[in-house]
Amino acid sequence: MRLLFIHAHPDDESIATGVAIGAYAAAGHEVHVLTCTLGEQGEVIPPDLQHLDADHEDALGEFRLGEWQAALAALGATGHLLGFDESGAAAYRDSGMAGSPSAARPDAFVNADAGAAIALARKVIERIRPDIVITYENQGGYAHPDHIQAHRIACAAVATLADPPRMYAVLTPRSWVAQDRAWLAAEVSAPGVTIPAADDPVIPSVVDDALVPYAVSDAEGARRQAAAMRAHATQITVHGAWFTLSNDIAARLSGREGYAPLDPITGLLRSGEPVAEAGARGWPV
């Protein structure tokens, strides 16, 4: 099969969908990743690289491009950048969080002309001709404006095709969150690291188990995911079986991901699918 994952920033492919990308690539499928910005607004973890961020040299995007390329090599996927011309100039910039000054910039991805961005995405989709396209659900995982925009652009581009590929959204069953938080509480104790409490709020992509019919759980995919996340050293610190972002909140590397069919016309989940293991044997189509 040929699969295309559409993401907003470098590292999203590894954190959100790295197990599936690694598993399917390892099984011999052709896996592509389309990334919409270079993540210029990201917070930088290593002190010796913090001069690259948007508040200083504003050179983080180019550095994260190298991280992204290394991560894709670890996963075994082919990368594409939305709207990059032959000189390497980006069409869109990381918007940052909603309400931030960076989100008001005219070149921010969230402010992209919809028709132009959809045409750029469709051009990539038509060139790759994927059997399956995977992106976020309609709230962008955790409501980041660029994730929501990537979802909109991906759905609209697929919806315009005469013979559209199947679409899936990455989701997390609510029971997995409970299991992962219990594991973190039992296994992780590190100075300065916050362990999520069992009753802490969850992000929008955490949904009832019944809404997540497909699970990808694969040891080689998990190994490749961890290696790819290590490549994103400005954004992620991997501590064995768990990791932290710049917020120092612990998250488990559980080696599993959930997916649900997505309707590209409405942008909403399609219901009625039976629960099944996707695995590396072939995604349901």
Rank of each mutant, 00 (worst) to 15 (best):
Leu4Ile: 00
His9Leu: 02
Asp11Ser: 07
Asp12Ile: 00
Ser14Trp: 04
Ile15His: 03
Ile15Asn: 07
Ile21Phe: 01
Ala23Lys: 14
Tyr24Ser: 07
Ala26Lys: 14
His29Phe: 08
His32Thr: 03
Leu38Lys: 13
Leu38Val: 01
Val44Asp: 02
Ile45Gly: 09
Pro46His: 05
Asp48Cys: 05
Asp48Asn: 12
Leu52Glu: 03
Leu52Phe: 00
Asp53Gly: 08
Ala54Asp: 00
His56Asn: 07
Gly61Pro: 10
Glu62Gln: 11
Arg64Asp: 11
Arg64His: 10
Glu67Gln: 13
Ala70Ser: 14
Ala73Gln: 14
Ala74His: 14
Leu75Lys: 07
Thr78Arg: 14
Leu81Pro: 01
Phe84Pro: 02
Phe84Val: 04
Gly88Asp: 05
Ala91Arg: 12
Ala91Trp: 01
Ala91Asn: 11
Tyr92Val: 05
Arg93Tyr: 00
Arg93Phe: 02
Ser95Cys: 02
Ala98Leu: 09
Gly99Gln: 08
Ala108Met: 04
Phe109Asp: 04
Val110Asp: 00
Val110Glu: 01
Ala112Val: 09
Asp113Val: 08
Ala116Asn: 13
Ala116Gln: 15
Leu120Trp: 07
Ala121Cys: 15
Ile125Cys: 06
Glu126Gly: 09
Arg127Leu: 03
Arg129Val: 04
Asp131Thr: 00
Asp131Cys: 01
Ile132Leu: 12
Val133Gly: 04
Glu137Phe: 00
Gln139Arg: 13
Gly140His: 04
Gly141Asp: 03
Asp146Gln: 04
Ile148Leu: 01
Gln149Arg: 13
Ala157Lys: 05
Ala159Gln: 11
Thr160Phe: 00
Thr160Leu: 14
Leu161Arg: 13
Pro165Asp: 01
Pro165Ala: 00
Arg166Val: 04
Ala169Asp: 07
Pro173Trp: 08
Arg174His: 10
Ser175Arg: 12
Ser175Trp: 03
Leu184Gln: 13
Ala185Tyr: 12
Ser189Gln: 12
Ser189His: 15
Ala190Thr: 15
Ala190Ile: 11
Ala197Gln: 15
Asp199Thr: 14
Asp200His: 12
Pro204Met: 01
Val207Glu: 04
Asp208Val: 01
Asp209Lys: 05
Val212Leu: 03
Ser217Trp: 06
Ser217Glu: 15
Asp218Asn: 15
Ala219Thr: 12
Arg223Glu: 10
Arg224Thr: 06
Gln225Thr: 04
Gln225Ala: 09
Ala226Arg: 12
Met229Leu: 08
Ile236Leu: 14
Val238Lys: 12
His239Lys: 14
Trp242Ala: 07
Phe243Thr: 02
Ser246Ala: 09
Asn247Tyr: 01
Ile249Pro: 00
Ile249Ala: 10
Ala250Asn: 13
Ala251Val: 05
Arg252Val: 04
Ser254Leu: 07
Gly255Pro: 11
Tyr259Asn: 10
Ala260Met: 00
Pro261Gly: 08
Leu262Thr: 02
Asp263Leu: 03
Pro264Ser: 06
Ile265Ser: 08
Leu268Trp: 03
Leu268Cys: 01
Leu269Ile: 03
Leu269Val: 02
Glu273Met: 08
Glu273His: 11
Ala280Arg: 14
Ala280Val: 09
Gly282Leu: 05
Gly282Ile: 05
Pro284Ala: 07
Pro284Lys: 09
Val285Leu: 14
